[in-house]
Simulated assay, not measured.
Amino acid sequence: MKKLLTTSVALLITGALFLGNKEKDHFTAAITKASAALPLDQIKMPAGFSISVYAEVQGARSMVMSPTGTLFVGTQRPGSVFAVKDTDGDNIADKKWTITTGMNNPNGVAIKNGALYVAEISKVTKFADIDKNLESPGKGEVINDKFPTEWAHGWKYIAFGPDGKLYVPVGSPTNIGIPDDRHAAIFRMNDDGTGLEKFASGIRNSVGFTWHPTTKEMWFTDNGRDQLGDDVPFCELNTAPKAGMNFGFPYFHSGTIKDPQFGGTHEASEFTAPAQNLGAHVAPLGLKFYTGKMFPAQYKDQLFIAEHGSWNRSKKNGYRVSLVKIKDGKAAGYETFASGWLDEAAQRAWGRPVDVLLLADGSMLVSDDVAGVIYRITYKK
């Protein structure tokens, strides 16, 4: 009887330890069978390139990688921020954590000094030592909650610039209109939320920016206004080598198109023209210069852009990853790199690219908030 009791107690203790460990492991599988049916064979790219699913993330939007290899992913309407990681080195994420839920369009994510920064519509929250606290990150510290509260064009892409400051955009709260000083601009602030200042203005809605690897100049996308027709104005790729530049909204679009309602007596020469006009209504979002070594040499320091795709054009446009060729620090061409998320005949899209990010091996990640996945694009001769 005594031996039986001893055995029972041991089993109870072992079971408790097992349950405790299981309860402590808050991660889930980063890939299930949910993405198996995606028609990846429809994606068209140059010869030698291939695409696969790196992770399944509901509503995957902006991405940032920590120095330890944890990928953090923001969302929009799902209201959550996720972390995924390839822990076994097979170039496919295998673990996924939910960092936070119930947030107001936490599209933007950034990393500095081990801390994760998350941007909602009206505030930015900091999660300290995030890689050490994936299981229990807490509620974080709100470092700035003074941004406008309008939902329209209020979701944010954020990133730290070469100057160590956090750059935060605020879009126009309407399709077209005269913005106040708090909208239609890109701002920057210190990493503790202080020192907020306007960096650039005349920007309808930027949801992606990056810096040239050599010149350190900012390049950013801007979504053009609607309701002027299918083919005008163009969405824009802009460059801001210094603070204080004005890119024309709402007076001029695409560098040369005067707004019929607000253009008035303004002249195009008052504003900075786009570095490259993109497709009309293609909704360009995240972008990165290619600095890896996996892709062929002609892609070195060239610019990849995720085009989310049009929403009200009579014939859909975008839904692809485009390539802007850079020569002598200037845009010198614009072409499609990867397409196939849009069924042209049916005019139906099964995926919408949002952001791009490079892995250490030179492969490229692309997030997709409709298919709910993150792809990995590789090259092999």
Score class of each variant (00 low, 15 high):
Thr6Cys: 15
Ser8Phe: 15
Gly15Lys: 13
Phe18Lys: 13
Lys22Asp: 10
Gln42Ile: 00
Phe49Pro: 00
Ala55His: 10
Arg61Leu: 00
Pro67Gly: 04
Thr68Arg: 13
Phe72Gly: 02
Thr75Ser: 13
Val81His: 10
Gly89Ile: 14
Ile92Ala: 13
Gly108Cys: 03
Ile111Lys: 01
Lys112Gly: 02
Gly114Leu: 11
Leu116Pro: 09
Lys126His: 12
Asp131Lys: 14
Ile143Glu: 08
Ala152Tyr: 15
Gly154Leu: 06
Phe160Met: 08
Tyr167Gln: 11
Ser172Phe: 06
Ser172Leu: 14
Thr174Asp: 12
Gly177Thr: 04
Gly177Ile: 10
Ala185Tyr: 02
Gly195Trp: 14
Glu197Phe: 00
Lys198Cys: 07
Phe199Cys: 03
Ser201Gly: 14
Lys216Asp: 12
Gly229Asn: 10
Leu237Thr: 08
Leu237Phe: 08
Ala240Glu: 00
Gly244Phe: 06
Met245Val: 11
Phe249Pro: 01
Ile257Cys: 03
Lys258Ile: 11
Thr265Pro: 09
Thr265Lys: 08
Glu270Tyr: 10
Ala273Lys: 15
Gly279Ile: 10
Pro284Ser: 05
Met294Leu: 02
Ala297Arg: 14
Gln298Ile: 11
Phe304Val: 11
Ile305Leu: 00
Trp311Leu: 04
Asn317Met: 14
Gly318Tyr: 07
Tyr319Glu: 07
Trp350Gly: 08
Trp350Ser: 05
Ala360Cys: 00
Asp368Leu: 05
Val370Trp: 03
Val373Asp: 02
Arg376Phe: 01
